[in-house]
Computed example of a mutant assay.
Amino acid sequence: MTTTLITGANKGLGKETARALVAAGHTVWLGARDIDRGQAAADELGARFVQLDVTQDASVAAALATIAESGTGLDVLVNNAGIAKRGEGMSEALDGPSVREVYDTNVVGIVRVTEAALPLLARSDNPVVVNVSSALGSFWATHEPTRPASHFVSLVYGSSKAAVSMLTVQYANAHPEVKFNAVEPGITATELGGGDPGSHPGRPAAESAKIVAKLAMIGPDGPTGTFQEDAGELGW
């Protein structure tokens, strides 16, 4: 049985990834900050809930301790938790505290959780880490006129996802025994940044979750140190 931890999984892309992996036979730990919402989502999906705030060292340590003590082990980590901060008119908030909050969640949060998870992943026969990134963090896509990312300005969120991509490469180099890959899930209708999924032009989260789940289910011969999307590898 493969055991997977997904951060930020009580709604949106994280929840749909959890749904897909439960259906595939994984034991899924659904991590979320909000206990009531997280437990409700886990109950709905047939997953296990663990309270997890990626911006808090103590919360991350407690969550991984809970998983370790449960005896399920840990084979896959999906670093999904991410935020965007909006100011007036739904434009990006560019004040210091907002930028710091985005980076603390999207970038530092990945380091916190990954470092805490590595001792458990080291015991797995097929350890895998999937980092949810974005084409907005791809230097190639943001310079390629045929890509939507080249026509959308995203100073903070985009640069935070560029950092996620580099973390993926560096972790893959530092831990060759673990497969680390970044994923571009596509433009997805979620509440990221305070938007309304019902009026979002993106595709359903369940559709975008397919590529995240696919990378979470790679075998021992799967890729590492890559950036993936529906069509295959994406340029960094």
Results as ranks from 00 to 15, higher is better:
D43K: 13
E44G: 13
E44K: 05
L45M: 12
L45V: 10
G46V: 09
G46I: 07
A47Y: 05
A47R: 10
R48F: 04
R48A: 12
F49W: 11
V50G: 10
V50Y: 03
Q51N: 09
L52S: 11
D53G: 12
D53Y: 06
D53Q: 09
V54I: 11
T55R: 15
T55I: 04
D57M: 02
A58I: 00
A58S: 14
S59M: 09
V60F: 08
A63S: 11
A65L: 09
A65G: 12
A65C: 01
I67F: 04
I67L: 07
G71F: 02
T72C: 09
G73A: 08
L74G: 08
D75Y: 03
D75W: 01
L77F: 09
V78P: 01
N79Q: 08
N79E: 10
N80T: 05
N80D: 14
N80Q: 07
A81I: 01
A81F: 01
G82A: 14
I83S: 04
I83Q: 07
I83E: 04
E88D: 12
E88G: 01
E88Q: 08
E88M: 00
G89E: 04
G89M: 02
G89H: 02
G89F: 01
M90C: 01
S91M: 08
S91R: 09
E92C: 05
E92S: 07
L94A: 02
L94W: 00
D95G: 03
P97C: 10
S98M: 04
S98V: 01
V99N: 05
V99H: 02
V99A: 10
V99W: 01
V99E: 05
V99P: 06
R100C: 02
R100E: 14
R100S: 13
E101I: 00
E101T: 08
V102E: 12
V102Q: 11
Y103P: 01
Y103V: 09
D104R: 07
T105P: 06
T105K: 04
T105W: 05
V107K: 06
G109Q: 07
I110S: 03
V111A: 14
V111S: 09
R112G: 07
R112N: 13
V113W: 08
E115S: 10
E115N: 14
A116C: 05
A116D: 04
A116N: 06
A116M: 05
A117G: 09
L118W: 07
P119F: 04
P119W: 05
L121K: 07
A122E: 11
A122R: 10
R123P: 00
D125W: 00
N126S: 12
P127T: 06
V130R: 10
V130T: 11
V132H: 10
S133N: 10
S134I: 09
S134K: 04
F139I: 15
F139T: 15
F139Y: 13
A141Q: 13
T142M: 14
T142K: 12
T142V: 15
E144H: 13
P145A: 15
P145S: 15
T146V: 13
T146K: 14
R147Q: 15
R147I: 02
P148M: 13
P148E: 10
P148N: 12
A149T: 05
A149P: 10
F152M: 15
S154L: 02
L155R: 13
L155K: 14
L155V: 15
V156I: 15
Y157L: 12
G158Q: 09
G158F: 03
S159E: 12
